[in-house]
Structure formats: C-alpha cells, structure tokens
C-alpha cells in the first residue's frame, strides 16, 4: 500500500482500528506477563534474603 492510497482509502480507519487495537492488546499482555514473572522472582529473592539473614 502506498502512502497516498492509505491516506485516501475510506477503509483505512477500520483497518487501523483493528490492527492497532490488536497489537496494543497483545503488547499490553506481553508487558503484564513479563512483569508478573519478574515480580514472582523478586518475591522469591526477598524471601531468600530474609531466610539468609535469620
């Protein structure tokens, strides 16, 4: 698709609306999942340190 074709095509809002929302949702899921794993690892780390201190 050429740039001008994209700008003038009446379907562009629908195409962008589906693709951008899809990519945003999947991207958000990725970030949240990776953050959740990191938090689980951190929680373990803290527990381990407390154990070591005792």
């Amino acid at each position: 698709m050429h740039m001008e074709a994209i700008m003038t095509d009446p379907h562009t809002p629908f195409i962008l609306g589906s693709w951008l929302v899809a990519m945003a949702l999947l991207g958000l899921e990725t970030i949240l999942v990776i953050r959740r794993r990191r938090q689980a690892q951190r929680a373990l780390q803290r527990a381990r340190q407390r154990q070591g201190a005792m």
Binding site: L26, E29, T30, V33, I34, R36, R37, Q39, A40, Q41, A43, L44
Partner: peptide, 13 residues
C-alpha cells in the same frame, strides 16, 4: 511464548 511465560510466573507463585 506468552502462555509459557505466564505459566512460569504461576509456577513460581
């Protein structure tokens, strides 16, 4: 990728 990562987090928890 995303499901196995979530499964890892779930396992750790």
């Amino acid at each position: 990728a995303v499901v196995l990562t979530r499964a890892q987090a779930e396992t750790l928890e």
